[in-house]
Design a protein around this nucleic acid. Structure first.
Length: 278
DNA sequence: CAAGTTACCTGACGGC
DNA sequence: TGCCGTCAGGTAACTT
């Protein structure tokens, strides 16, 4: 369930181990991910290239080459990236290996193959990257992601606020866990229509989303089933969960019992005391 | 055009 | 023991 904080933690872990290294070989399992792995295209574009940077946009990792070519990786639900010694044993569900010129290799592992590995070709990075992220909403920490922007986008939308903030076309990086936590911390019921939030509530919600994501990044992300960072360490933001996964337990703020409810096909956790019904 | 539904995929888990 | 159903959920394609 890597959301923005988990992807950012992985990015921070990978970057120092990748920058300046050359890709000297690429291997793939034959199994397709969410989209087919562009194996031949990667061999053509990436072999002999040096990695210059590792970026993140929304829940995507972007590994940039000195040619301007880039690998774009989405971790889906169970995907992870790690650096391993070249000769270490392959793990079950490893799908792509990028061998580097220092005896290590970058590996993409994804149990459920919901993830994706894409390639942006060299030479026209700005165009291709712009195209790739054309429909993606602004980064939560960016200036363009203002309370005013969100308020405007929500105008006349009857969709549940929870589903709205999880829509990557509206705002990037907020998945089920951080949507649940942010709405609880903002005291907003997840079933409320997106358009029903006041300007003041949008201001508050945006501040809380930013703070929640930031805290989670500082905790190394949330490890629920098996998320680990690039060096194999789990995060610990899950100890700060106030509603997610806590159905039947007591709200730390008001003492009422947290309930679980399906909203838009996703598990939603609500404190009936703190988050008033719409 | 908005909103709702489904497919994709594997493993963990509960019930019998 | 093992079989079956359910759930986890980001994204895009699809239907209403």
């Amino acid at each position: 369930m890597p959301e923005l904080p988990e992807v950012e933690v992985i990015r921070q872990g990978l970057a120092p181990h990748l920058k300046g290294l050359k890709i000297i070989a690429i291997r793939c399992s034959e199994k397709p991910l969410r989209t087919p792995v562009p194996y031949n295209e990667m061999r053509g574009e990436l072999l002999g290239q040096t990695i210059t940077a590792v970026h993140r946009r929304a829940k995507y990792l972007i590994v940039r080459m000195d040619s301007d070519a880039a690998i774009i990786i989405h971790l889906g639900m169970t995907g992870n990236m790690g650096i391993f010694a070249k000769n270490s044993d392959p793990q079950k569900h490893d799908h792509v290996y990028w061998e580097l010129d220092n005896g290590t290799e970058l590996r993409f592992n994804d149990t459920r193959r919901f993830g994706a590995v894409r390639l942006l070709e060299a030479g026209s990075r700005k165009t291709l990257e712009k195209q790739f992220f054309a429909a993606t909403g602004p980064e939560p920490f960016s200036r363009s992601c203002s309370a005013r922007y969100l308020n405007k986008r929500a105008a006349s939308r009857k969709i549940a606020i929870k589903k709205f903030i999880m829509d990557s076309h509206v705002i990037a990086g907020v998945g089920n866990i951080y949507a649940n936590e942010s709405l609880f911390r903002s005291k907003i019921h997840p079933d409320r229509a997106a358009a029903s939030l006041s300007a003041k509530e949008w201001q508050r919600l945006l501040e809380v989303i930013r703070k929640t994501l930031k805290d989670a990044i500082e905790c190394g992300g949330s490890t629920i089933s098996d998320f680990v960072d690039a060096s194999g360490r789990g995060g610990y933001f899950q100890i700060n969960f106030q509603v997610y996964g806590r159905a039947g337990r007591t709200c730390a703020i008001c003492g009422e019992t947290i309930i679980k409810k399906n909203i838009g096909g996703r598990a939603s956790f609500i404190c009936p005391g703190c988050q008033k019904q719409p």
